[in-house]
């Protein structure tokens, strides 16, 4: 059965989706079969990083949760060529992007249990090694489910006072749900910050291991979600850290 990695943040703007997409590529570069599920149904966007936009007739997660599409029909192969050469594969289950569909989902809701069953059905049908869940920021029914079923929760935050407070709440919830492994990722770390001080503050604030400290990068800002940094800028420190995080997770918790 595939391992479930939930990537979550308490607040928006942490770079959670960017990290999720790049981690998926880093895992796939190691030959893993990976699915990325965009459960940020209210504000989807991770598909952009894979250069994918659902065309007319192509199903999204909404079509499974609110209609009759099978979850396999909602999974699209987005494997970049360089990842194919490494014998890895990436499927994306995108969320619907048009306003009417998002509004309908918010208005009518969906059975959150259907999401649970979908992840495990997809895992079996595609013989996945890993399922990465890109969650909606904050806490709601879907993020609680994603947290509860995860083998590992990656909490992404910026070195920002509001993030420190909110992240504490999310970690308390995860611990109440007995998540087997939690790792902190501090993203967008400004160059003038002392990484050791940040490391110590995070460790003392949460008592949770740090997975990675990822630098704030002009290069990534320039990339502007136009691709995957681990593939387009593989020698960049941010990309090296993400690949290191993928290796760490595979060696320790996945």
């Amino acid at each position: 059965m595939a391992h479930i990695l939930a990537i979550h943040s308490f607040r928006g703007g942490t770079g959670k989706s960017n990290l999720t997409a790049n981690l998926a590529a880093a895992f796939a570069l190691k030959g893993k079969r990976v699915a990325v599920i965009d459960t940020d149904l209210a504000s989807p966007g991770i598909h952009v990083l894979f250069g994918f936009t659902p065309a007319a007739g192509q199903f999204t997660l909404n079509d499974h949760l609110q209609a009759d599409a099978s979850i396999e029909q909602c999974a699209h192969d987005v494997t970049p060529r360089s990842v194919q050469q490494a014998h890895g594969q990436i499927w994306l289950v995108p969320a619907a992007m048009d306003g009417d569909r998002i509004a309908r989902l918010l208005r009518e809701g969906y059975e959150v249990e259907k999401l649970n069953d979908a992840l495990f059905t997809l895992s079996e049908k595609l013989k996945l090694d890993l399922v990465l869940i890109d969650t909606h920021p904050g806490i709601n029914e879907e993020t609680l489910l994603s947290t509860a079923i995860a083998d590992c929760l990656l909490m992404v935050m910026r070195p920002d006072s509001q993030d420190y407070l909110g992240t504490a709440v999310a970690i308390e919830v995860a611990q109440r749900l007995d998540v087997p492994a939690i790792r902190m990722v501090v993203n967008k770390l400004p160059e003038l910050f002392d990484p050791q001080q940040v490391r110590e503050r995070v460790a003392s604030s949460y008592g949770v291991p740090i997975g990675a400290l990822l630098p704030l990068s002009d290069d990534l800002l320039t990339l502007a979600s136009g691709g995957l940094a681990v593939l387009m800028h593989p020698d960049h420190p941010w990309s090296e850290q993400v690949r290191g995080l993928a290796s760490h997770l595979l060696e320790t918790v996945l």
């Binding site: 059965m1 479930i4 959150v112 649970n116 495990f120 029914e141 609680l144 489910l145 509860a148 079923i149 919830v173 109440r176 749900l177 007995d178």
Partner: peptide, 23 residues
């Protein structure tokens, strides 16, 4: 609900119900 599960006590009851998720 997941929020309801989160609020349940004791921890063993939450663990039982959480274990019934996934497969």
């Amino acid at each position: 609900s997941m929020a309801g599960l989160l609020a349940l006590e004791p921890a063993e009851l939450r663990r039982l119900l959480k274990s019934g998720l996934r497969r």
